[in-house]
Design a binder for these strands. Structure first.
Length: 111
DNA sequence: ATTATGACAGGGC
DNA sequence: TGCCCTGCCATAA
């Protein structure tokens, strides 16, 4: 099954997330020009399993909550990966989220 | 073509 | 402060 351009765009943005940083579904959606399709970003992440090297663990909801941790192979892999990058996670939530937040609309060098 | 769904976001009670 | 409802758009069936 051939992925649509939308998914590829999402994956491309996710791949650009620097190590030790996180972003939100809404921020990615906004960057792609579909700010109201934040749900689709999550859907794209769900399809990211067929791809490789997609740091989906760096994508959380606007509250910094690891809503997608259950979609990982192992329930604690997401939290473990984030912690390995220097991001503190507690109770399925990213601590100092605004400090680790990476906004593609501002940080991305030019598409 | 139509209906249901989703790892969200925002506003209301 | 916290839970519930609605909007929104792309994909799958």
């Amino acid at each position: 099954m051939k992925p649509s351009r939308f998914f590829e765009d999402v994956w491309d943005v996710v791949r650009l997330i620097p190590c030790g940083r996180v972003t939100t579904y809404g921020a990615i959606a906004k960057y792609l020009g579909v700010a109201k399709s934040s749900r689709m970003v999550g859907w794209a992440m769900n399809a990211s399993h067929q791809q490789s090297q997609i740091p989906a663990h760096r994508v959380v909801n606007r509250n910094g909550l690891l809503t997608g941790k259950l979609h990982f192979n192992e329930k604690d892999s997401m939290e473990r990966l984030l912690h390995a990058e220097g991001i503190s996670v507690e109770n399925d939530r990213v601590l100092q989220f605004d400090q680790h937040f990476w906004d593609p609309n501002i940080e991305i060098p030019i598409p």
